[in-house]
Nucleic acid binder design. Sequence first.
DNA 1: TGCATCATGTAATCAGTTACATGATTTT
DNA 2: AAAATCATGTAACTGATTACATGATGCA
Lengths: 185, 185
Amino acid sequence: MVLEHAILVSLLEKPGSGYELARRFERSIGYFWTATHQQIYRVLKRMEGDGWIDAHEVAQQARPDKKEYSVTALGRSALSGWLHEPIAPESVRHELAVKIRGAAFDDPAALIREVERYRQEHADRLARYLAGERRDFTGPEAPAPPDAGQELQHVVLRGGIAYERMTLAWLDDVLDTLHRLGPQG
Amino acid sequence: MVLEHAILVSLLEKPGSGYELARRFERSIGYFWTATHQQIYRVLKRMEGDGWIDAHEVAQQARPDKKEYSVTALGRSALSGWLHEPIAPESVRHELAVKIRGAAFDDPAALIREVERYRQEHADRLARYLAGERRDFTGPEAPAPPDAGQELQHVVLRGGIAYERMTLAWLDDVLDTLHRLGPQG
DNA sequence: TGCATCATGTAATCAGTTACATGATTTT
DNA sequence: AAAATCATGTAACTGATTACATGATGCA
């Protein structure tokens, strides 16, 4: 399971509670793997049972206590083993593409507004990625020279940026195509 | 569920059996939605029960009989309703990115060979997409002028091509980064 | 007083994968 | 004779989502 290993990576970068992990999955880690808090808590239980991580209670001032997890030697070697396994071929899942082909049996022009909304979501995501890149890697606050971990985080983020730029360009192509097929096309 | 609607689109493009659908999901439709035959047969049963499709037995010479499915009026309107729903935000799932960030806690150079193998898979996929594009849209055999359905199929395929090109460029960036972090980096 | 944030969970359901199973025909 | 292709399924399991649930503190 990939999620377990994504959690190991996140906890190695910095130990934290289930709640904190859930928030990291809304940003940072969430740029390339998503998970909800329900799923995270369940998997943390299993990982603790397997001895990959251990928890210790942390009392906090003016906040509920939390369980802070950190990776054990066993967890570290489980991650290492997984890293050496071949990468599973990705299964393609692109809902919008299904809708575009479906539009041939409906009104293509009706999709335009929805594609525009969808495009805006990706434009926002790109803006967030670029802001993160400036903050952590290319801005004046960024550490120079970066260490290996930072180089790797940066190349992953560059992948996200490249993906969003490609998506925006393609959505423009889609909108152009839908317009050409429109009422007077 | 997206799969049901992907099946409706495929059956509207051309009626067929579960087996034939499974093969279309290895190419064409499979460029943007994957499914195995087990899943397809299960969903076809449900769709038939819901009255979205109906089957009729087709006797074949020198082959087992098959059940050919086609979309009913009810199925068509179910597809139409789904097309007008907002597009669900995609959940990002990128296993390689998890491994790249994990490599900070292992040997980054050990990933190089695996990334190269993975890159080759994407190069092959791009070659297949481009061959399909020449065959169906840009080659001398392609219909001119294309109808709306073909325009929509083409823009989806262009999306696949753009995705693969972006991925190859990013993987080159990844390999470059891993090399720079290597033994004498 | 009510809403947002912090913090952790259970239960039910749905979607997708993997393993197993059968049997005909056609090609090597 | 064996392997590949055509054709259709069942069963078990895993992974992920959705709905529901609780309770504290801090701020407007």
